[in-house]
């Protein structure tokens, strides 16, 4: 059975609105109008045990709403949810004992105490037997190499160190399912990489199911074998990142260094766009199917020192997908 099963899930938020200015303030004192915001519309999802799923989408797309619904923090407006065989909204203890959630911007660690103190409290909350607690702690500390930091008050840790502690706090009770909301937000490249490695380990060796949201394409590229793109509360894509890219990375980036300046008379095949043109340098964008045609045309017309052909940046691709609107192609 799937570990997560979501059918026709919708969530609508109510938001107060107020006209600007003094008059608006006065009016709002008496009567306040409410705006309905669809955060999630007819969402369907199935996740099997052991999967590592990445959720991407622009701000306000509904990623966090989905995670909150799956945790049971908020209730759906309509549709059905089944997580680990439970209805999340009922917040049964047996349910909450089997998952963990890490929100990049909300820390569960006690700010002024060493992380170990929070771990000890979690031990009681989750009823982790002493032996298991020690064993897990030991393993994670080894994996991150941060044993000496356990005694340092959290407020004196760096952002990366804090996130490692955050992950440890979430994993000590051996959850089957972990929700990660922006786990690498604000971290430097090295810390991001360490976190990724750690998550990969947890997923492959312990078969922990991971559902993560992220703004960073690198997270998704290195971690997730399955990517879900959400935009404006709707699922736009569900599948591997590679497939997504082959479909949408229709363009190639071509950079040419010329040995002699080329005049204005340079003829480019139709469909090629010139992004930058300098006497000794050309930066072109060309559909994949036309790369060959472009190269032979260039070879005929000018002397080249160097040529570089690259995939279009993932970020650009994703941005284009967001902008392409409602078109569903799952």
């Amino acid at each position: 059975m799937s570990i997560i099963q979501v059918t026709n899930l919708s969530k609508i938020y109510q938001r107060p609105v107020k006209e600007p200015g003094f008059k608006g303030s006065l009016k709002a004192l008496v009567k306040r109008s409410v705006l309905q915001k669809k955060a999630l519309t007819d969402f369907n999802l199935r996740v099997e045990e052991g999967e590592l799923v990445g959720l991407i989408g622009p701000n306000g797309a509904g990623k966090t709403t989905l995670v909150k619904l799956l945790c049971g923090i908020i209730q759906p407006t309509s549709g059905s949810l089944d997580v680990l065989g439970f209805k999340p909204g009922e917040l049964k203890d047996a349910f909450r004992r089997q998952y963990a959630v890490v929100m990049g911007q909300k820390s569960q660690l006690w700010w002024d105490l060493p992380a170990l103190d929070t771990f000890r409290l979690n031990k009681e909350i989750y009823g982790i037997p002493e032996e298991k607690f020690k064993k897990n702690l030991h393993e994670y500390v080894d994996l991150f190499g941060i044993s000496e930091l356990l005694q340092v008050p959290v407020r004196n840790l760096s952002l990366g160190e804090r996130m490692k502690m955050e992950l440890m706090a979430a994993l000590l009770h051996d959850p089957r399912l972990i929700f990660l909301d922006e786990p690498t937000i604000g971290l430097d490249a090295i810390a991001q990489k360490q976190i990724r490695l750690f998550l990969k380990e947890i997923n492959t060796r312990r078969q922990v199911t991971i559902l993560m949201t992220s703004h960073y394409m690198d997270d998704i590229r290195h971690l997730c074998n399955r990517t879900i793109v959400i935009n404006e509360g709707e699922k736009m894509y569900d599948g591997s990142l590679e497939n997504l890219l082959t479909r949408f990375q229709g363009q190639r980036d071509v950079q040419v260094i010329l040995s002699e300046p080329v005049g204005l008379g340079l003829n480019l095949p139709d469909g090629v766009t010139c992004r930058e043109r300098q006497p000794y340098r050309l930066h072109l964008q060309v559909p994949r199917s036309q790369v060959k045609e472009l190269l032979s045309s260039l070879l005929l017309q000018c002397e080249m020192d160097d040529i570089r052909i690259e995939d279009e940046e993932i970020g650009n691709v994703i941005e284009r997908i967001y902008r392409s609107g409602r078109e569903v192609f799952a």
Partner: peptide
């Protein structure tokens, strides 16, 4: 060695008998 060190878990957290279930 590492994976042995990491012990694959039986999935449901059956080990937590100390907990009051409903």
């Amino acid at each position: 060695n590492e994976s042995e060190h990491f012990h694959r878990l039986p999935n449901p957290p059956s080990s937590f008998d100390a907990l009051p279930e409903s």
